[in-house]
Design a binder for these strands. Structure first.
Lengths: 235, 235
DNA sequence: CGCCTCATTGAACTCCGTCAAACCGTGTGG
DNA sequence: CCACACGGTTTGACGGAGTTCAATGAGGCG
């Protein structure tokens, strides 16, 4: 009972802050009276939502759970482009080549809203504010991508990891959750592939942070005792 | 005389392949009969077109010359996000926060077309294909940013530099110029800040490539003798 | 010619990747 | 219930690619 209520509340929160909200709340229904969103698509842990290189048929918004957006890297491994939290949109990058540029994989059981591409197109054509919203979303992702890129290229491993934890805490806070203590949805390898370092380095740096008393990390549970120290990490 | 003809031709080429072409060639003029583009804005070497953090008032397309798009990095230095060649668009990333995310600086004397933001907005609202084109541009840049990001994180310095030279050659070829011999519009520091390495490493790797007989590099003049060898560089 | 910036080269150091082993939590089967 | 196996995590030792510091060389411009 408690779990159900909690899940409903989490969804409500997700919709309130959803990146695709303007699409769901278009002033006028679509011509053929179809619902904008085919909701309730559920994914199990490890399930692939869409794969890099395949034709894009929809865009998505995360209602509950977490996903990773990853690009395959020649040779071995992958590059984790970004982690998707509830309210985040995915699949917008496919507007360009009409092919998905990344692969989206569920990190745990989750639920996503699916908006077929022709609906997006029709909504954008009919409502300028929807089109403008999509531009804003894309531009925001672009600016963020380059900001992360800039950091990656010039910052040390501890600084990257500190930034990662703070970023996650911030996104958590945006969604109305405790930003000092949370559970990591991803494993060490995925963190490493996101930051461009190795699992061993992730582990070593975390123990260093722990030794400084800045964080408590046990498995995937994280508590940030001193975010300022992390922010102030030199170099 | 020869110079003038050459300049005119270069502009024609730039317009033919311009990323903002659909805006200039809207089927119907704007209501108030204003020209879409305030062209002929000229920049001297080192001049700033727009600065990160300032409000965005226009988007731009490069007609002639070269610019760099850079993000300031906390501490020291900057991260060069991308180099702009004739035909490239700039300033689209400001759609998000309505602030420029990067700084654009002319690398040499150049000429850009300026499209005021309200014109962009009106064109996008009036013509769905213009809106769709803007989405495609943004999505393309986003996919490219992440692709570069993925490469950066996992590749060695020589591989990065090899990729950089090949990328530049390719973009040169796209514009109808010789792709085997060209002049670098940027200095070593800017290359280094683009690739996330130091100037010294850039220099060392270039001498290594030279020693292998793969390239001739003298100052900013570059000749690629063996692009395949660069492409095949291990790791 | 001299000054300044940019590019190159050299030598010492360091951070991080690689390889390898130990550790831990969880699930499985006896 | 314990033993065992297995994946993910942690820790250690070592080496190498690239940074840092410092000095020299090469153009460009007054």
């Amino acid at each position: 009972m408690v779990a159900r209520a909690s899940l409903a509340k989490r969804r409500q929160l997700a919709c309130a802050g959803c990146a695709l909200r303007p699409l769901c709340h278009a002033p006028v229904p679509l011509p053929d009276a179809q619902p904008v969103v085919d909701c309730r698509r559920r994914l199990e842990r490890g399930e692939v939502l869409f794969e890099a290189g395949t034709p894009q048929s929809s865009v998505f918004a995360v209602r509950a759970g977490f996903l990773k957006l990853a690009a395959p890297v020649e040779g071995s491994g992958e590059h984790v482009v970004r982690f998707l939290l509830p309210g985040d949109a995915a699949g917008l990058e496919g507007f360009g080549a009409r092919l998905h540029a990344f692969t989206a994989v569920a990190l745990d059981d989750c639920e996503v809203c699916e908006v077929p591409l022709q609906h997006v197109r029709r909504l954008a054509d009919a409502f300028p504010n929807v089109a403008a919203h999509l531009r804003r979303l894309l531009a925001g992702e672009l600016a963020e991508a380059h900001a992360r890129f800039a950091g990656m290229a010039h910052l040390s491993a501890p600084k990257r990891l500190a930034g990662f934890l703070l970023d996650l805490a911030g996104r958590w806070a945006e969604r109305g959750y405790a930003s000092r203590a949370f559970r990591l949805p991803m494993d060490r390898r995925e963190i490493a592939d996101h930051l461009g370092i190795t699992v061993e380095t992730v582990s070593r740096v975390l123990t260093e942070f722990r030794a400084q008393g800045w964080v408590t990390v046990k498995g995937r549970e994280v508590i940030l005792h001193d975010p300022e120290a992390l922010r102030a990490y030199p170099r």
